[in-house]
């Protein structure tokens, strides 16, 4: 909330400044913002609906069943995959990870899950491709997945 307020206040301040410098340019800028916003709106709605549906079908119990208990290589890979396809806000994911650790899950598994969760976006792929092109999107997500596994392995060794 505080963050949103700060962003809006800063924007309002800059908008005012811009308006004093040149009202004509500011209006052009606002028109561009409006156009961009209108273009992105259907995408935003789609992503939000997908996230909502996905999260309701991958409840905490499912995550706990797959990520808790003894660590195996398959489990770490599964955790990375689960993190890739799901999209859980960190506000929920981090406390969940904490409770999983307490319940006996390994740090490696949790690191694989958390890292792919935040760095690889499956649901948002279409929007990423639209804005940045297929090549950047492909390599960014693939490399993020690989690095997430490496990070998980190193955390397992160093913890």
């Amino acid at each position: 909330m505080k963050v949103a307020l700060a962003i809006n206040l800063i924007t309002a301040g800059l908008l005012l400044l811009s308006f004093f410098k040149s009202s004509r340019k500011t209006l052009i800028a606002l028109k561009m913002s409006l156009q961009k916003g209108a273009n992105l709106m259907p995408w935003m709605i789609g992503i939000i609906v997908l996230i909502g549906m996905m999260l309701s079908f991958v409840p905490e119990q499912t995550v706990e069943r797959y990520l808790g208990g003894e660590m195996t290589l398959i489990q770490v890979g599964g955790a990375a995959l689960l993190g890739t396809i799901t999209m859980i806000p960190s506000l929920i994911a981090v406390p969940l990870a904490g409770s999983l650790i307490e319940a006996g899950a390994s740090y490696t598994t949790i690191a694989a899950f958390l890292t792919t969760l935040i760095m690889v976006g499956f649901v948002t792929l279409p929007l990423e491709i639209k804005e940045l092109g297929i090549k950047i999107t492909f390599w960014r997500n693939l490399l993020a997945f690989i690095f997430a596994i490496i990070i998980a392995g190193m955390i397992g060794v160093l913890m």
């Binding site: 949103a4 962003i7 800063i10 924007t11 800059l14 908008l15 800028a29 561009m32 916003g37």
Partner: peptide, 9 residues
Amino acid sequence: PAVLVLMGL
């Protein structure tokens, strides 16, 4: 909306 306006500016 704020991010969009910032981008426009």
